[in-house]
């Protein structure tokens, strides 16, 4: 079975602004540094799904192809906010097989080791490429 790749992204204001423009979520906590500095996080935080982007990229690299194949299920628990400038790393535990599906436990951690999200990926065994 092909190993699950590690993907690393640093979240800059450019990515946050691009996500705001694409999603239409222009909450000032994401796009206005002065407003965000006075808010509960003391600075800009990224939209929640930005932290998930490293997972989607890793899944695409693992399975190949440009989309998400049928039968894939991804369950995500968000644990901590992503702050401007954070470097996020996506990595997975070795896969297990359950009821014919390949199951991966995935974590996205920041540069300080804080776990930003946990995810469980379930993929039909037949679509996972061989090593």
């Amino acid at each position: 079975m092909r190993p699950f790749p590690e993907v690393v992204h640093t979240v800059g204001q450019g990515a946050i602004d691009a996500y705001a423009a694409l999603s239409g979520d222009c909450n000032p906590l994401h796009v206005d540094p002065d407003y965000a500095a006075a808010g509960p996080f003391g600075g800009v935080i990224a939209h929640g799904p930005i932290a998930l982007q490293v997972v989607w990229e890793a899944v695409a690299g693992w399975l190949g192809g440009s989309g998400v194949p049928p039968g894939v299920c991804l369950d995500v628990a968000y644990r901590a906010p992503t702050r401007l400038g954070d470097t996020l790393t996506c990595r997975a535990e070795p896969p297990t097989v359950h009821a014919g599906d390949v199951v991966l436990s995935i974590a996205v951690v920041g540069q300080d080791g804080v776990e930003v999200l946990q995810a469980l990926l379930v993929v039909p065994r037949g679509i996972v490429p061989p090593d």
Partner: peptide
């Protein structure tokens, strides 16, 4: 714009996974 680094254009036949939470965020708004 969602195949890798956000906003960096990369072409592909199918929509990448990152489209899913983004589209639902647009719909929620």
């Amino acid at each position: 714009q969602l195949r890798g680094a956000i906003g960096v254009v990369a072409e592909g036949e199918h929509a990448p996974g990152g489209v899913l939470p983004l589209v639902t965020l647009r719909v929620l708004r």
